[in-house]
Amino acid sequence: MWQKKESKLELAASMVRQFMPEFSSQKNVIILCDSWYTKQNLVSIVEEYPNLNLIGNARADSVIYDLAPAPTGRKGRHAKHGKRLSADDDFTLSDEKINGYYIGVRRVLTNLFGSREVLAYVTTPEKNSCTRRLFFSTIFPEQLQIFCAWQEKPPLNQTGSEWFQYIPLFLYSCRWNIEISYYEQKTFWSLCSYMVRNSKGIEMLINLINISYSSMRLLPYVDDKFAGYRNKSVQDFRFALSEGIRSQVFFATFVQKVETQIKSTSVITALKQALGKI
């Protein structure tokens, strides 16, 4: 299991390295990832490209520290970081809910990013809730100001309000639009099982899954027989497809079983008896 996780992280890092030359002219390229990918194998890649950043969910118990205190002028080695912080006790939450959550934010240091300062966000549905989620962002709001100035809809256009400090966290919500395809692949199309153990096999499987999923999503738009499912739920379309596949498999199996003369004669006799009773 550990080797499989390491292989997927290495594959993700390899894919980023392959694509980054194509984005060399872009000012900000941002990786959005959940806590499964927020590991040293992947996050370290942001140090390799000056225009690459990462916004990711992280384990709530991740080790985080306050920024290093200012030098005192005394002899001895300067402290690399401040006191250890807690996601539960050391973040001041917003006075009101923002996009359904109370949010706290501060600059921190963490073992995950070494000496690099990052933004840490904490979100909770209720202030007295024991459920808190932690996010890290290597990009800061001021780096996104020009991008946000072109946005017409909230919350990304809130460059002149106190919401501006939460812009990186708002960007993380864009990940959900990407995640929908993976959620549907696993939940409704049963494309979640695999038995491959190397990077090449995982890459080929991912390509096959995405091609299959895209084909099923495009089918209502290229085949008039399925046009009625363009605006229907995934469950309804999956049921219609599975019924069609089941019917074809049944008839194919039926033909194979009646190929011999003996079986054909038996089937014809049975049909005649059934027709005689009508």
Rank of each mutant, 00 (worst) to 15 (best):
K277A: 06
I30E: 04
N231Y: 12
V255L: 14
D66I: 06
L134R: 05
N53S: 15
A58P: 02
W176M: 11
G82A: 08
S44I: 05
F254Q: 10
V46E: 04
V16Q: 01
Q273H: 07
Q145F: 08
L85Q: 02
S266Q: 15
H78T: 14
R132F: 08
Q235D: 09
E47D: 15
E259Y: 12
L32K: 10
A227P: 04
A274H: 10
I245P: 01
L208Q: 08
F237V: 04
P69Q: 10
A58H: 02
N51T: 09
N231G: 09
I103L: 07
K225W: 09
W2Q: 14
V122A: 03
G160S: 14
I30A: 00
A79H: 12
R246N: 13
R175N: 00
D88E: 14
G228I: 03
I30Y: 03
W189N: 07
G114Q: 10
P168T: 08
S161A: 08
M195V: 14
L144V: 06
R106G: 07
K263Q: 12
Q3W: 07
Q273F: 04
L156N: 04
Q165E: 14
K39N: 11
I98N: 00
Q185R: 09
I262W: 02
H78Y: 10
N157P: 06
S25Q: 14
L144Q: 01
V118K: 05
T110W: 03
S86Q: 09
T260Q: 11
I167C: 03
E10N: 15
C174D: 02
S233L: 06
S193F: 10
C148S: 14
S137F: 04
R116N: 13
K97S: 00
L85W: 00
S190E: 09
E117F: 01
G201R: 09
S193L: 12
K80R: 15
K83H: 02
Q145T: 09
K277H: 07
P125G: 04
V16W: 02
P154F: 03
F136R: 05
S173A: 13
R175H: 08
I98L: 07
E22Y: 08
D90I: 05
E96F: 04
I30P: 01
I167W: 01
T38I: 04
Q185P: 02
P21V: 08
T92A: 10
H81N: 11
F164A: 09
I202G: 01
R230D: 05
L191P: 00
V267G: 06
E126K: 14
Q151R: 13
S173C: 05
N51D: 09
K153L: 08
W36F: 15
S115E: 14
A60Y: 03
I180N: 05
I245S: 07
N210Y: 05
T92L: 06
P69S: 11
S161V: 07
D236E: 13
G160W: 08
L134M: 11
F254E: 06
G76R: 06
D90F: 07
F147P: 01
E203I: 06
E152D: 12
S247T: 15
N53M: 00
E22N: 07
G100D: 04
R175C: 04
A252S: 13
K257C: 07
W189Q: 08
P155Y: 00
K75L: 11
L208F: 15
P125K: 13
